[in-house]
Each structure stands twice: as structure tokens, then as C-alpha cells.
Simulated scan of single mutants.
Amino acid sequence: MNYRLIGQAMRRLQIYAAMVYFSPEYDEELMAAGLEPGVMCYFGGRAAAMGAVPASVIHAAFYNFNPERVRENIPKAWTLASPEKLLEARLMAADRALKRLLGSEVLGSPQVAEAAGLARRAAMSAATEGRPLAASHQELDWPDSPHLVLWQGLAILREHRGDGHIAALINAELGGLQSMVSHAATGSGFLPSFAQSHRGWSGEQWNNAAEELRVRGVLDADGALTEQGTALRAGLEEDTDRLAAGPWRVLGDAGAQQLAEIGGELSTALVAAGCLPAEDVFFPAKR
């Protein structure tokens, strides 16, 4: 099975799972459940599958957030709403956002039902040793509607891939902030300004991490990736793709291709419908 093609497929498919965190419905539902606006909703909704864990556990699992940003919101979030209530709110947000962006006719199609079955099968086959977010999401009850089964299945696969990516970063001896600075230098994903502010890092901390990467030979004097840095980031993506391939093998080539095609079309439609923020959050190629 081609690891690179799996990686390309997952980068498209994860839009279907991740779009909820950018939707207005997400903050609406989690604030209605009791949380405060802002990053507390992100931490509370995404980490709720692990239960009312302390800030140190969330920081370990989320990796590239400033631990102070986590401690500002956790464990306070668990005093405002139970993890169970937050999981219900997150699923409601996903349901509302998907219906607004894609419509009930698309979501009720046989293709979505087929993709849902494939995603669930792959997600439940995923080995979760050393993957806390994937393991906790795998234990959740499944919704009834196919479009939400697809959402949950892709969410598990996304967390499985993310846990593996963290393992690759640790193996490469890149800390959370260094990983963000070096990834920003690739010109993909989050813009540095958003990554820095949303993850809670100061300008001084960001610049210090960049200097550490320059000393290591990953960045040049202008903050661009060196040849060594380019190879490092490429190797990280290759390792991540390889570590994420396991759940796809159970589908076989035909099933994997079918999930990639149906899910990819849905993700493309979501982007066209405006599921990603309009403000300067991503590099242009991502929008």
C-alpha cells in the first residue's frame, strides 16, 4: 500500500472531521453546554473523549500548545461542563455544520453511507498503543446517522494520524514549539501569526525557538528551511504517512480508494462552501 497516497488522502479527508472546530456551531454548542468562549471550547470538546484529565495530559496529547495556555483553561473547563455533555455538544455541532454546508440530500446519499461504513471499519481496526487521542475516541459510542458515523470514523483516523505524527516529532527531537516554527517555514498549514497566537506563544518564545532551529541547521538566517531542514520535514511527513497506514490496510486497495474518493469529494465541497475561516489563518494554498 502506497504510504504517500494514504497521506494525501488523509490530508483531504481530515477536512470533513476538522471543519467542526472552525464552525460557528462548535462554539455555540459548547458555550451552551457551559464553557467559556475561545480556546477553552477547543480543548474541552476535543479532549473530552479522554475524560476530565489534568492540563498536563492535554498538553502532552496536543503537543504544540503553550502549557500555560492549557492551564488557563483546564481543569476549569471540567468544572463548567462534564466531558459527556461536551461530547454531545460536539456531535451536535458537527451535525449542524455538515447540514448547513452540504445539505441533507448530499448527507443522506448512498455514497455517504458507503463511506461511513468504510471509515468505521478502518477506524475500529486502528492499533492505538501509544496513541491516547485515537484510543479515547475509539471508545466512544457511535451515532446513528451515516454522515455522523463518517465524521466520527474520520475523526478517529485523524487523531490516529496525529498521535503518530507526534511520535515522529519526538523521534526527530523537535519540541512542540519547534515543530510549529519549522512547519510554518514550509509555507503550508497555519500562518505563523495565527499559529503563534492560537497556541499561546509569545513573539519572544517563537523567535527563541527559531534561533534554536538555526543553530541546529534547520533554518537559515532568514528563517527559511535549509537543505537539512527541508529533508527533516519531508522525512517527518513520510514517517507520519507510514505510521498512519495501518487502519487503511483492512479496507484493501479498492475500499481505500473508494473512501478516499468519496471523502475527498465531500471535503472539496466543504471547502467550496466556506468551512475554513476566511481570515488570515492558513497559507493561501490551504484555502
Rank of each mutant, 00 (worst) to 15 (best):
residue 2 N to C: 02
residue 2 N to S: 12
residue 3 Y to R: 05
residue 6 I to M: 13
residue 6 I to T: 01
residue 7 G to I: 05
residue 10 M to F: 13
residue 17 A to T: 05
residue 25 E to D: 10
residue 26 Y to G: 04
residue 26 Y to L: 10
residue 27 D to K: 06
residue 29 E to I: 00
residue 29 E to D: 04
residue 29 E to M: 06
residue 31 M to I: 12
residue 33 A to G: 07
residue 33 A to I: 01
residue 34 G to K: 10
residue 36 E to Y: 07
residue 38 G to F: 14
residue 40 M to S: 09
residue 44 G to L: 01
residue 50 M to F: 06
residue 57 V to N: 04
residue 57 V to P: 00
residue 58 I to T: 03
residue 59 H to Y: 04
residue 61 A to D: 01
residue 63 Y to G: 08
residue 65 F to D: 02
residue 67 P to C: 10
residue 68 E to P: 00
residue 70 V to H: 12
residue 71 R to D: 04
residue 72 E to L: 15
residue 74 I to Y: 04
residue 75 P to T: 08
residue 77 A to Q: 09
residue 77 A to G: 01
residue 77 A to I: 05
residue 89 A to R: 02
residue 89 A to H: 03
residue 91 L to N: 01
residue 92 M to L: 12
residue 94 A to V: 09
residue 103 G to I: 11
residue 106 V to D: 09
residue 106 V to K: 12
residue 110 P to E: 01
residue 111 Q to Y: 15
residue 113 A to Q: 13
residue 115 A to L: 14
residue 121 R to P: 01
residue 122 A to C: 13
residue 123 A to I: 09
residue 123 A to Y: 11
residue 124 M to V: 00
residue 124 M to Q: 14
residue 124 M to W: 09
residue 126 A to D: 04
residue 126 A to P: 02
residue 129 E to N: 06
residue 131 R to I: 07
residue 132 P to N: 13
residue 137 H to M: 09
residue 143 P to R: 10
residue 145 S to L: 05
residue 151 W to Y: 15
residue 152 Q to C: 12
residue 153 G to V: 10
residue 154 L to S: 10
residue 159 E to A: 08
residue 160 H to Y: 15
residue 160 H to P: 02
residue 163 D to V: 14
residue 163 D to L: 10
residue 166 I to D: 02
residue 167 A to T: 11
residue 173 E to Q: 14
residue 176 G to A: 08
residue 176 G to I: 00
residue 177 L to D: 01
residue 177 L to S: 01
residue 177 L to A: 06
residue 178 Q to W: 03
residue 180 M to N: 07
residue 184 A to R: 03
residue 186 T to W: 12
residue 187 G to V: 06
residue 187 G to Q: 07
residue 192 P to G: 00
residue 192 P to Q: 00
residue 194 F to A: 08
residue 196 Q to M: 15
residue 197 S to T: 07
residue 198 H to G: 03
residue 199 R to N: 11
residue 200 G to L: 06
residue 204 E to V: 12
residue 204 E to R: 14
residue 205 Q to R: 09
residue 210 A to I: 06
residue 210 A to E: 05
residue 211 E to T: 07
residue 211 E to R: 04
residue 214 R to P: 04
residue 219 L to N: 11
residue 222 D to M: 03
residue 224 A to I: 02
residue 225 L to I: 09
residue 228 Q to R: 12
residue 231 A to D: 02
residue 235 G to V: 10
residue 238 E to Q: 13
residue 241 D to W: 14
residue 244 A to I: 12
residue 248 W to V: 12
residue 250 V to L: 15
residue 250 V to P: 12
residue 253 D to N: 08
residue 259 L to R: 05
residue 260 A to V: 02
residue 261 E to F: 02
residue 262 I to K: 01
residue 263 G to W: 13
residue 265 E to Y: 00
residue 267 S to L: 11
residue 269 A to N: 10
residue 277 P to F: 10
residue 277 P to V: 11
residue 280 D to C: 01
residue 280 D to K: 15
residue 283 F to W: 15
